[in-house]
Design a binder for these strands. Structure first.
Lengths: 140, 140
DNA sequence: TGAACCGCTTGCAATTCGCAAGTTACCGAA
DNA sequence: TTCGGTAACTTGCGAATTGCAAGCGGTTCA
């Protein structure tokens, strides 16, 4: 029997797999981290074809995991703003490691040369740069 | 967000998400990389409760992706040996980034202090160390 | 030669996914 | 102040995937 969802803790790979081991969650994190997505529609329109019910479920899971923050836009109550929490921004090095791997092994993947150079020469600095450009949510 | 980060449209993350964006694949990679798993039964017995049909399907997908190699044990034709290809071992930094994240954010993490220390001080060296200890498959 | 093991495969019920349509709330213009 | 449009979901339903258990063909060992 598969481990219950409350038995995630302990093994770090099991924890990470449970939290972000999902195609759609990774794409949502990409959009938040690298594409400036902040609203529900941004994710829907990201070009990956995620269904709206799946998007809603993944955003709830990421919020419950403490990775994503959800808040009402103070200037427009009809709008919701999604952002990365500190726990979420701490995933940037993981995303960058994936990008470096894909850049090396997927012949059809296009990573800008400047980006890949920055990644290979100093990934930590690039991670900081990306993090510092992210908008902060109101709770921070 | 800065245009520099918008030049490409998520291809590398889409590729990585498609290849390893799955809970079971990440656990299989963990077992291969860190737990010395080499045979079908090793994965079944890893304690995660993966179903045998799911395991078989994921191993095929990882093999098709060029991440995992499957070969017959030359000393026992009834046995199959699974191992990481170079494309697979190049995922070690990604796994280590996930482990570092989990070690930081899972309050019940079981990452040994010595491992975490090695990870934080020189992740690249640790990745090499892990890779060098892996068995090579016959094709290499 | 037969029992045991190994690596799967199959059958089936239950869960999850993906698509499309519907719903609720808010905002801005008339 | 109402009305149309937008934003963020929610619901319904058929299809695909998952999880569980049993089965199966090949190989090794006693």
């Amino acid at each position: 029997m598969a481990k219950k969802l409350d038995e995630w803790h302990g093994c770090p790979m099991r924890y990470a797999a449970a939290m972000i081991g999902d195609r759609w969650k990774l794409l949502i994190l990409r959009d938040l981290t690298l594409k400036g997505a902040r609203r529900y529609r941004d994710f829907l329109d990201a070009g990956e074809g995620i269904a709206t019910n799946i998007l809603a479920s993944r955003l709830v899971q990421l919020e419950d995991a403490g990775i994503v923050n959800r808040e009402q836009d103070p200037k427009n109550a009809a709008r919701t703003i999604y952002s990365l929490t500190p726990k979420g921004t701490d995933l940037i090095p993981t995303l960058l490691a994936m990008i470096a791997w894909s850049a090396q092994w997927d012949p059809e993947t296009e990573v800008p040369a400047s980006f890949e150079r920055a990644l290979r020469s100093d990934a930590e600095a690039l991670a900081h740069e990306i993090r510092d450009k992210l908008p902060q949510f109101a709770g921070e």
